[in-house]
Write a protein that binds this DNA or RNA. Structure first.
Lengths: 109, 109
DNA sequence: AACTTATATAAGTATATACTTATATTAAAT
DNA sequence: ATTTAATATAAGTATATACTTATATAAGTT
């Protein structure tokens, strides 16, 4: 499933918003999503599977608990796709800013 | 339709990629998409409608032609949603970079 | 005026997917 | 050892949507 399809679902976006604040156990995610969307545990678990399969999250097993964390790679890919449109809304960089951006890109690699 | 649902479709993403390079007539878009995806003119027109309805594009009428342009607002909204994850991959800003970012934000308003 | 070109819409269909209930799996607690 | 808790999976269903063909609309051309 393509990254944008994964993000197309509001429940999955909400789960990622939770994980943006730090790791969460499956049960904690289920509680929040059930409150906000009124769907079953099974449905939430299926969304978690989509997020795992598409690389948006990773899981750590802690006894009977599964602890989910966000993985940045697919999010970065989405961000990179947006690059081609940034010139439409970002003001032109000054020479100094260009230098800094260059340095930032280098550090990233 | 939510911005992420709109971007979930590969044909619509491709159309936006074309428009990122500048405005295109409906017919030009149809030609490219038919080559790459093998779908009918009607199907492309329906995707163009989704892009219009969701605010990703605007149209200018030129006689019998429709000239499409990209509109940035929904793309910016997607970019803004990603903000919450940027800290995961963007190196911490130096004081100087923070100053510049502040200025950039001010200019934007 | 009739024909052609450019584009959009209507109606119908197939498929993907977001749910449901029921059940499996494994760990923890009694 | 049973029972309970935490989570995942299986199977089935309903709905959204991405197509198709056919047709409409409006502008250009002859």
């Amino acid at each position: 499933m393509h990254a944008f399809d994964v993000l197309g679902d509001p429940v999955r976006r909400r789960i990622l918003e939770l994980l943006a604040k730090g790791e969460h156990r499956s049960g904690q995610i289920v509680t929040v999503i059930q409150n906000e969307f009124g769907i079953t545990q099974a449905a939430v678990s299926q969304h978690l599977r989509v997020l795992r399969d598409s690389g948006f999250t990773s899981v750590r097993i802690e006894g009977a608990r599964r602890v989910y964390s966000v993985e940045v790679q697919p999010l970065q890919a989405v961000d990179a796709w947006l690059d081609r449109f940034r010139s439409f809304w970002e003001p032109k960089l000054s020479a100094l800013e260009t230098e800094i951006a260059r340095g930032k890109r280098k550090r990233r690699r």
